[in-house]
């Protein structure tokens, strides 16, 4: 489904180049559950933004399905994001003046979906994350965990094939963080490809496939069976 070949991304900071990614090769199949871990500044977020077509590599190729994304126009990449990709962020990024259901409706509004269908889908998505009762609440009336669940509902409202999460538990306590990850895992079990960036080994260890980044390069790419050794390890540390 996803194929990165020789992808690099260089920022120019104060005249000197910063190599955030230095030639990354990565293939991810449909329905996979991948965690991307590594120390701060290793290039995890940069990689996720490239995967989500929010950013373009300076060199290399990125194929999404059959399509080469690096030669797409901005409008084509917008369409790809709109229909195929959902994002979950560390800081939720809910629009504060809109209610939960209003936030979930937003991507469908930009897609031009008729109001009736849109509202129905938004309610379904909110019920899917267990927040049907809080649909009329604004973000400041919701806890962090609830806000992140609204964000997940928004990310999947357009029924994308890929869900990208950048430190989704970074702003949450362990209990609600664990609930959030569990929620996304359930969506993965029903076919959604899931990629989670985290520096938390307990979160990252839950994925069947664990990619480790260091200084802009992939240094490890391990596959484990579902409920593999890491879940045992995390159970031990708790």
């Amino acid at each position: 489904m996803i194929q990165l070949a020789g992808v690099s991304r260089t920022y120019v900071v104060g005249g000197s180049p910063v190599h955030a990614l230095k030639g990354v090769d990565l293939a991810i199949g449909a329905g996979e559950y991948v965690s991307i871990m590594g120390p701060s500044g290793s290039g995890k977020s940069t990689l996720l933004h490239l995967l989500g077509c929010l950013d373009r590599p300076n060199a290399g190729s990125y194929r999404f399905g059959e399509a080469e994304t690096t030669t797409m126009t901005e409008a084509e990449r917008c369409r790809l994001r709109r229909h195929q990709i959902g994002f979950v962020f560390q800081f939720f990024h809910l629009v504060p003046r809109l209610t939960a259901v209003g936030n979930v409706e937003l991507p469908m509004i930009f897609a031009g979906m008729p109001p009736g269908e849109r509202t129905e889908r938004a309610w379904q998505a909110l019920e899917g994350v267990g927040l049907g009762a809080r649909a009329g609440h604004r973000p400041d009336q919701l806890s962090g965990g609830e806000q992140q669940r609204v964000a997940i509902a928004r990310a999947v409202a357009m029924r994308p094939s890929l869900l990208l999460a950048d430190e989704p538990t970074g702003n949450l306590d362990r209990t609600s963080g664990s609930e959030i990850v569990g929620l996304m895992e359930r969506m993965n079990q029903s076919g959604l490809t899931l990629i989670v960036v985290t520096h938390d080994p307990q979160v990252g260890g839950r994925a069947r496939r664990r990619v480790r980044l260091s200084d802009g390069l992939i240094v490890a790419d391990e596959r484990h069976g579902a409920g593999g050794p890491s879940s045992a390890a995390s159970a031990a540390t708790v």
């Binding site: 989500g52 929010l54 901005e74 409008a75 917008c78 369409r79 994001r81 709109r82 229909h83 994002f87 800081f91 990024h93 629009v95 937003l106 991507p107 930009f110 897609a111 928004r154 357009m158």
Partner: peptide, 14 residues
Amino acid sequence: TREIGLMKAIGATP
């Protein structure tokens, strides 16, 4: 700014 970034991430065209 954040809202605009979000709009783009969820598929709003320029």
